[in-house]
């Protein structure tokens, strides 16, 4: 599904990702953890080329998005993304937020898009908010709308960039619940998060990143129960 080979990313002189190689299988839920500044968000953003790739390859369904000739817009249709700060469109209602991309990108009719949007809102438990504007929603509600918006494009992979970091603690649960449900339905997911409980419970595999490298990767029970690397141990001792 996703294959990353020797991925490097620099901002000016500063090398943030130093040779990342990893594969992610279909229906797999991969959780990326690590201290801040470890490059985990940048890694995620390279997977749909929101960050230009400095060198290496990122294959999505066999297409190398590091190749400038590739139609990145087409590939992004298959790669949904959820942001830390939601990034809902404030000038559009909740329903319009979800309908916009299917109508403009996939040229779906308004009726079909609306029906689908309502179904997704029901799924994330916000059907009653269809016609309000994002500013009147709580953080947790905004993030659930953002998930619904990404799902409306029927992606094959979902990327989550610290989806609960900007939320008040009491709202974290409702978002994680939606994500868990999604995982159970068989969505391929890459999740950057600080929620170790979620990683343990939902993740098929956990990547621990530090200093621009993937230091250690394993099944959650093994990585959390028996970390091999000193840096992993040091990090886990602080967050657990």
């Amino acid at each position: 599904m996703i294959r990353v080979e020797n991925l490097k990313k620099s901002f000016g002189d500063h090398e943030v990702l130093k040779d990342i190689t990893v594969s992610i299988a279909e229906k797999e839920v991969v959780v990326v953890i690590g201290p801040s500044g470890s490059g985990k968000s940048t890694f995620l953003r390279c997977l749909n080329r929101l960050e230009e790739i400095t060198s290496g390859h990122v294959y999505i369904n066999g297409m190398d998005i590091a190749d400038p000739k590739v139609n990145i817009n087409k590939i992004r249709e298959d790669v949904g993304m959820v942001f830390q700060l939601f990034n809902l469109f404030p000038h559009k209602s909740v329903l319009e937020n979800i309908m916009l991309a299917p109508m403009k990108v996939k040229k779906v009719s308004k009726e079909v898009a609306e029906e689908k949007a309502l179904r997704l809102l029901e799924k994330v438990g916000l059907k009653d908010k269809a016609n309000v504007y994002p500013e009147s929603l709580s953080g947790g509600q905004k993030q659930r709308v953002a998930i619904a918006r990404a799902l409306a494009m029927e992606p094959k992979v979902m990327l989550f960039d610290e989806p609960t970091s900007a939320l008040d603690p009491e709202m974290v649960g409702e978002v994680l619940e939606v994500m868990k449900e999604l995982a159970q339905e068989g969505m391929t997911m890459v999740v950057v998060t600080h929620e170790m409980g979620f990683a343990r419970e939902v993740g098929d595999r956990v990547l621990f990143m530090d200093g621009g490298y993937i230091v250690e990767e394993n099944k959650p029970e093994l990585l959390f129960g028996n970390p091999q690397h000193e840096r992993t141990k040091a990090f886990l001792s602080k967050v657990l």
């Binding site: 817009n73 249709e77 990034n87 469109f89 404030p90 000038h91 916009l100 403009k104 990108v105 494009m153």
Partner: peptide, 24 residues
């Protein structure tokens, strides 16, 4: 983030400008 959200949904730069950025 507005541009990034629009682009991550598969919109072209022009579509993102037209539907998301310019109206705001």
């Amino acid at each position: 983030g507005q541009m990034e959200a629009a682009r991550s949904l598969g919109m072209t730069h022009v579509q993102a400008m037209q539907h998301v950025i310019i109206p705001q």
